[in-house]
Amino acid sequence: MKIRYGNECAKNFQILKYGERIYVDGIYITLYPAGHILGSAQVLLEKQGYKVLVTGDFKTIPDATAQKFELIKTNTLITEATFGLPIFCHPDPSEEIKKIITSLKENPESNYLIGVYSLGKAQRVINMLRILGYTNEIYIHGSIKKINQYYSNKKINLGRYTQVDKDNIKLLKGQIILAPPSAIKDVWSRKINNKVIGLASGWMAIKQRAKQKLIELPIILSDHADWNELTKTIKSTEAEKVLITHGQEDCLKYWCKKNNINADALANKNKEL
């Protein structure tokens, strides 16, 4: 958090390990891995035996750069719903990353500028490229560097990476370059020659969206649960009540009702109160 938001982003810091229970104002709090990015957590709140689980951003599929999602049974579940529509069924992540390597082999003169969130996505993409046997230097935008260092310290294999600067930017040829989505179409990237622009995001599943953004190589790779993961998780937590927030609430709510689970959108609930 300090790397991302600065040293003064909170007044006090207290480290809480996964699975360690603390007692605050009459409520027990426990954190469990959410599988979203390194260190992401679900929060379990308990009072007099009644459990409320807040998933936060999560995904259940394997990711070598994040702790594995842990399934927790609960009475009330507050779930995210970024991809809460049945059209979202994320493809095999490894096949998506292979697209970059294959395309680069076909166009060895081109630079592959791939948009990735600096925190989490960038490191996951680098790590996956390494797992797939890509050993070349990977070039990164400055905003990714500190987080990379953090991940490297946590023994996550990122291989060799170099920050793009004003000296090397014009010389790049046949390289993979990672930058936050806002930078791929900006002044910063202008000096990169002969580039193919990609974007690694769950939203790339929708072709028309990728086209609107003028993306040439859409990589469908998400750190959020897709429709199947969402519905499976809701079922498996055995929650009798589900509150849905952050994304596409309506379809999930409809699905819950169809499956005899009491559900509502969190925002609407607040409005009613």
């Binding site: 529509l85 049945p86 059209i87 929708i206 028309q208 596409q248 409809y254």
Partner: peptide, 23 residues
């Protein structure tokens, strides 16, 4: 398919072929 889920999805995607491809 479930018509409600389809309608919501189609509304979101905006392209019939693409909605069916995904859903």
């Amino acid at each position: 398919l479930d018509w409600y889920l389809f309608e919501q999805s189609y509304d979101y995607v905006g392209d019939l072929a693409e909605t069916i491809a995904l859903i």
